[in-house]
Design a protein around this nucleic acid. Structure first.
Lengths: 254, 254
DNA sequence: ACACAAAGTATCATACAGTGATACCGGCGG
DNA sequence: CCGCCGGTATCACTGTATGATACTTTGTGT
């Protein structure tokens, strides 16, 4: 009902938070961005944004060229550390390899990052899709395997992610209305897996299952392949395998 | 009078700088680290370190599990942005592909990051070495292709990187004394390329050349392969190709 | 099982670092 | 030539980051 109205906005480490807002902003925009745009995009005073970018540049998390500011090489090193050190990624990788080998499909693991998800591991299948989404790429939560994340959220969190979307369109052109979507999500949660066709990528089918431990959703395992290849039998087999993989990863990761 | 002893240490955005020190620390340690270790490792008061980590966790640049703190998934997304958006990487990739195809060797590009370098692009050759160093990995500047970075620095910068090392050992067991090393670096700078054997990896030979524009060293192109494979003819060809690649990348990247 | 040590968390007064208004510089386009 | 826009420097004020202290939890050894 009545939420308090405005967010209280208690601020600890404001400058640090802002620094990462800047990094996120650069991260999202992908292209080099000018100072003024950074200031606008993050809502910072231009002088503040400038000081911030200076510092970030000194630390190599941001780089500046004639076209503007963008993410710097230090981010790469950090990501490498994540990939080499993260427990979930480490334990999932062999499982994904098995999946990809057994099914001939591309297998991947993603984790939630705010209102989207990030691909953290990926093993190519025998017929890789043309579409390339390398590790680190961000995807929406309402399409394809992302639905699994939404499936295990409560209504409030779901609403927070979906915002004021009344409906949305899939890559295949289908229109999904939010009430129907909610029902679909609940079904995914009870079934324990999701199957998606033409949602994020046209001509692709994916099967996704949660990686859960103690009720926490650590990530989502997924296999994806071209529609023609996924016969009913392969689909059935893949579904079992992916669900098992999700359970297996959760169990082994510690 | 000029106090030669202490660094002035003017501080702007102290908390932000510290935040990235924390991230760097986690990045370097690779393994999950406990709060107290972070505090020690970064020299921060434990309370400060804790507050910092909280904020970093909220932004997903740091993750916490039972074993301690480590880099979070947001770093991956940032790195992805770097790889997909960075001009140098983008223009270098096709060149590296050509190199790898023409020579059958693994080709890579690295950029300097403080006192080390980071691999930012890599294309496998026909006989990939067992040794795996994926994109994002950090390497020292005094071994293999890293020498090129040192070669184009002035003595002061060189000293800053090498610190108080009087000599060092290569992977092959050779001992290199700093004065000799300096001479070797100068020679690299005049020749415009470096050849390394058994320096970083036993049994490997690498050829490295600078990517320079307007006197700035943007990065280093490199090919590497097993010693047996690198006949004198291939070596000569590779040297020409790598040097050209360096020039080509610099020219095309804008 | 207990006690002690170590790690982690909360609280708080102080000073200093971060902030944004303002003003200054330089290049581009009209 | 002038005006506009993006970027940079300066500076006084105040809010926020800081670290000492004290408290709670976790884990280790006997």
């Amino acid at each position: 009902m009545a939420d308090a109205g405005g967010t209280p906005e208690r601020s600890t480490m404001r400058s640090v938070e802002r620094a990462f807002e800047v990094v996120d902003f650069l991260s999202d925009s992908g292209k080099p961005v000018r100072l003024a745009d950074v200031a606008r995009g993050t809502g910072l005073h231009i002088a503040t944004a400038q000081r911030m970018l200076r510092v970030l540049e000194r630390t190599n998390y941001v780089a500046q060229d004639s076209a503007g500011y963008s993410i710097g090489a230090a981010a790469l090193a950090a990501a490498h550390s994540y990939l080499m050190g993260n427990n979930l990624v480490l334990t999932a990788t062999p499982v994904l390899q098995e999946l990809a080998a057994a099914l001939g499909l591309t297998a991947s693991l993603s984790v939630r990052l705010g209102a989207s998800r990030v691909l953290v591991a990926r093993v190519e299948g025998s017929s890789p899709l043309r579409y390339q989404l390398p590790v680190g790429g961000r995807l929406p939560l309402h399409l394809g395997g992302g639905k699994v994340f939404l499936a295990y959220m409560d209504d409030v969190s779901r609403a927070a992610v979906l915002g004021d979307m009344g409906q949305f369109e899939t890559a295949g052109g289908g229109i999904v209305k939010i009430p129907d979507f909610m029902a679909a999500l609940n079904e995914i949660a009870t079934r324990g897996y999701a199957v998606s066709r033409n949602e994020r990528v046209v001509g692709a089918v994916s099967i996704s299952a949660p990686v859960r431990r103690d009720g926490d959703l650590l990530g989502v395992v997924q296999v994806i392949g071209p529609e023609e290849k996924l016969t009913p039998e392969l689909l059935a087999q893949a579904t079992r395998d992916v669900v098992n993989a999700g359970v297996g990863i959760a169990a082994r990761s510690r």
